[in-house]
Each structure stands twice: as structure tokens, then as C-alpha cells.
């Protein structure tokens, strides 16, 4: 669903004029949203809605000053580190559990229960523990990402076609080879779904952590701006852009890794 083509295909098939209707509609909707934004700024005052033009100017000024860049780097550093650590753990653990159905059943209720913990709520306590450095944010990000990747990978392993595994055994493939070639490749679509769900949440978790305590990063900037001025929206926009760019990168990696699949179909949600 991160891809437009699924819908575009249904539409484009009937006539190319429809395609232009879609593009036109999107342009109109974009303009309407901007106008609504401008109207909101005029009626409610800049404290509630920073006017779009002013926002764009502010964005440009911040980009030139380099401050935005260092804030983005500070936020991404934590988000990516937590994302990578938890992503690796979230993939390895299901592979280990695959070997023992009994252990899987034994830990299942514990995992389901702890999955329900609002991980962000642990942040104030982690800050008590680790102080105001990157560590508390890293732990929250890692916890958030871990469960998402673990659950999707686990679901993927359960969906692997048993017949392919049986075929590979008859042919003489080793268990390691089966894990690597058949199970891993089969669950790749699930893995990417997990990553795509997890990444925006990793960024969110970092920013929320920065709200609570931080000396740098996008979250600190937003929280600082909240009380004094009207630039909240500025960084909100930056965050969206950031997530969209990284999502696009993940999408193209996925497309490359899954080029063997019949159609680019998204199975998430």
C-alpha cells in the first residue's frame, strides 16, 4: 500500500485520460490543503497555524544555517542504531525458536504480554537510569522495533511452504542451507513489511524521547518551539519528508530483493 501503482493500474487500464484526472485531482487537493492551511493561519493566528509561505522561508533559512542538518543527524543516529540492533535481534530469535516448538509455546504468553507494554512509557524511568544521553532513547527505539520485526518474521516463518522444505531435504540440502535459501527468502516480504512499519515508529520513538529530555535533535527543537514560537509545523514537515525518503529507499531495496515475485503486491496490514 505504499505503492500507488496498485490503484493506478485499475484506473489506467480503462483510459489514459483517467490517469490525468487522478493527477489533476491530486494537484487540486494539494492546493486546497495549502489554502486551508493559509486560511487557518489567518483566522486562528500564527500561534496555531504558521502560514505556509513563512514556514517555507523558515525551513530554507534553517537548512542554510546547518542547524537543521545537525538536528536531523542527531535524531537519525539514535533511530538507526536502535533500528539495526533490534532488527537483527528480531530476525535471529525467531530462527532460533523455529528449532523448538516447545520453547516457542513456553515463551509465547510472555512475549504477547510484554508486547502490550507501552514502551514509550518506560522512557522517564530509563532516563532516571541512564541519564540524558542517547542510551534511554536507544533502549526505547530498540524495544519498539524489536517486537514489530519479531512478530512479522515469526509470522513469515510460519507461512513458509512446507512442501518446498520437504523437496529441498529430498534433494539433499542441509538444514543450514534450508534456513538460508528457503526460509529466509520466503519470509523476506514479511521482513520488509516489518521494517516499513517499524521505521516511522523508530523515528517517532526517538523524537518522543527527545521531547522528554535531550540537548539536540528534531524532538528537542519541536518541544522548544512549542512554547515560544510558531515553528512547530516546520519541523513536523521535515520529519514527514525524512520518513518518506527513507521509506522510498526501503521500497527500492525491497523491489530489488523481491524482483522474482510476480507482481509488486503489498501484503502489509
Amino acid at each position: 500500500m505504499t505503492d500507488v501503482p496498485a490503484t493506478m493500474a485499475d484506473v489506467g487500464k480503462s483510459a489514459t485520460s483517467r490517469k490525468w484526472l487522478v493527477y489533476g485531482g491530486r494537484a487540486v487537493l494539494t492546493v486546497l490543503l495549502l489554502l486551508g492551511w493559509e486560511y487557518g493561519a489567518r483566522t486562528l493566528g500564527p500561534l496555531f497555524f504558521a502560514p505556509p509561505l513563512e514556514t517555507a522561508q523558515r525551513l530554507w533559512a534553517l537548512a542554510l544555517s546547518g542547524q537543521m542538518f545537525s538536528d536531523i543527524v542527531a535524531t537519525l543516529r539514535v533511530a538507526v542504531a536502535g533500528f539495526v540492533i533490534a532488527g537483527i535481534a528480531g530476525v535471529i530469535l525467531p530462527f532460533l525458536l523455529r528449532r523448538s516448538p516447545r520453547a516457542t509455546e513456553a515463551v509465547e504468553p510472555a512475549i504477547m504480554f510484554t508486547m502490550g507494554i507501552p514502551k514509550y512509557a518506560l522512557a522517564p524511568w530509563l532516563i532516571l537510569w541512564f541519564g540524558i544521553g542517547d542510551m534511554p532513547k536507544l533502549v526505547v527505539v530498540a524495544l519498539v522495533v524489536f517486537y514489530i520485526v519479531f512478530i512479522t518474521t515469526f509470522a513469515g516463518i510460519r507461512c513458509v511452504d512446507r512442501r518446498l522444505i520437504s523437496m529441498a531435504r529430498v534433494i539433499g540440502a542441509s538444514e543450514r542451507r534450508i534456513s538460508r535459501e528457503i526460509i529466509w527468502t520466503s519470509l523476506l516480504p514479511f521482513f520488509f513489511t516489518g521494517l516499513k512499519i517499524a521505521f516511522p515508529r523508530a523515528v517517532s520513538a526517538t523524537i518522543v524521547g527527545e521531547f522528554l529530555v535531550s540537548t539536540q535533535g528534531i524532538g528537542r527543537y519541536i518541544e522548544g518551539a512549542r512554547q515560544v514560537s510558531n515553528t512547530t509545523g516546520v519541523f513536523a514537515g521535515v520529519v514527514i519528508a525524512l520518513v518518506l525518503v527513507i521509506n522510498a529507499i526501503l521500497n527500492s531495496i525491497e523491489r530489488w530483493a523481491l524482483r522474482w515475485r510476480p507482481v509488486e503486491r503489498d501484503m502489509e496490514l
Partner: peptide
């Protein structure tokens, strides 16, 4: 086997 069980990614 009855199903061809080809690996879809190969």
C-alpha cells in the same frame, strides 16, 4: 511430486 515445488525466486 504432484506440485512442481519450484523455488519462485530462482
Amino acid at each position: 511430486t504432484q506440485d512442481d515445488n519450484l523455488l519462485p525466486w530462482r
